[in-house]
């Protein structure tokens, strides 16, 4: 697997970051840290998409103002657009999740998952 570090380095980084984000969602008891884990997971997927679009020795996806530009070595614009959309949708998701967390704290007075389970079991 070590030989892939040279040619597939961004994918290796993306997969490791996916694992860290998943770990935060599973292991952290604090709800705010779980939401940070979701965001970390998302950025790993963005990195995956952006590295799929990358082309060695190329430029950013800017084309010259000509009708027939000919052969151009620029990154693929399509994964970039998907990632832009996903970043904005991700913030919307984070905002809703954090609003729910604020309400949970107002109702139960705790943000810890284990305490929350006990409080709800007592009711």
């Amino acid at each position: 697997m070590i030989e892939y570090l040279d040619t597939h380095y961004t994918y290796v980084l993306a997969f490791v970051l996916l694992a860290i984000g998943l770990y935060m969602m599973i292991a952290n008891e604090n709800l705010v840290k779980k939401v940070i884990g979701v965001n970390l997971f998302q950025t790993a997927i963005f990195l995956f998409f952006v590295s799929v679009a990358y082309v060695e020795g190329g430029d950013a996806p800017i084309v010259p103002a000509e009708t027939n530009p000919g052969e151009l070595l620029v990154a693929s614009p399509l994964p970039h657009v998907i990632v832009l959309t996903a970043i904005v949708v991700g913030v919307a998701l984070t905002a809703v999740a954090l609003a729910l967390i604020v309400r949970i704290y107002a109702e139960y007075g705790t943000l810890r998952e284990d305490t929350l389970r006990e409080v709800r079991a007592d009711e």
Partner: peptide
């Protein structure tokens, strides 16, 4: 570095 300046600006501003 991965030739995505638009994504980078959005990530810096929003992320």
């Amino acid at each position: 570095f991965l030739l995505a300046p638009d994504v980078a600006m959005t990530e810096a501003a929003i992320g």
